[in-house]
């Protein structure tokens, strides 16, 4: 496992997690959460858990983001925090 690639991935994941809960626009927050899921999936693929990685990429990053966007279309995308 390459240490440098590992550290770059972990920094990206931390930035995405902090951005997802601080952005005021809910649609942007959900999109950043999808990017977070894909970075997490890269990290699992690098750890050797390929089955978990492609399940995460299809189920959590794909269907989860679609569910979030469908819920936001039925409600509002504005928030106060």
């Amino acid at each position: 496992m390459t240490i440098a690639f590992d550290i770059v991935l972990q920094v990206f994941i931390l930035i995405c997690a902090i951005a997802a809960i601080t952005v005021r626009d809910l649609l942007s927050s959900v999109m950043i959460l999808g990017a977070y899921s894909f970075f997490m999936c890269l990290m699992w693929a690098q750890m050797g858990a390929v089955d978990v990685a492609f399940t995460e990429a299809s189920v959590s990053a794909g269907i989860g983001t679609i569910l979030f966007i469908a819920a936001l279309m039925k409600t509002t995308r504005r928030s106060r925090d």
Partner: peptide, 23 residues
């Protein structure tokens, strides 16, 4: 957080971190 969707985003991040620990 005060917004319900933000709370659900937090639940998602929490569960992913636990799964990452187990992997």
């Amino acid at each position: 957080k005060n917004n319900l969707i933000k709370k659900i985003v937090g639940i998602n991040i929490f569960q992913t971190a636990i799964i990452l620990f187990y992997i």
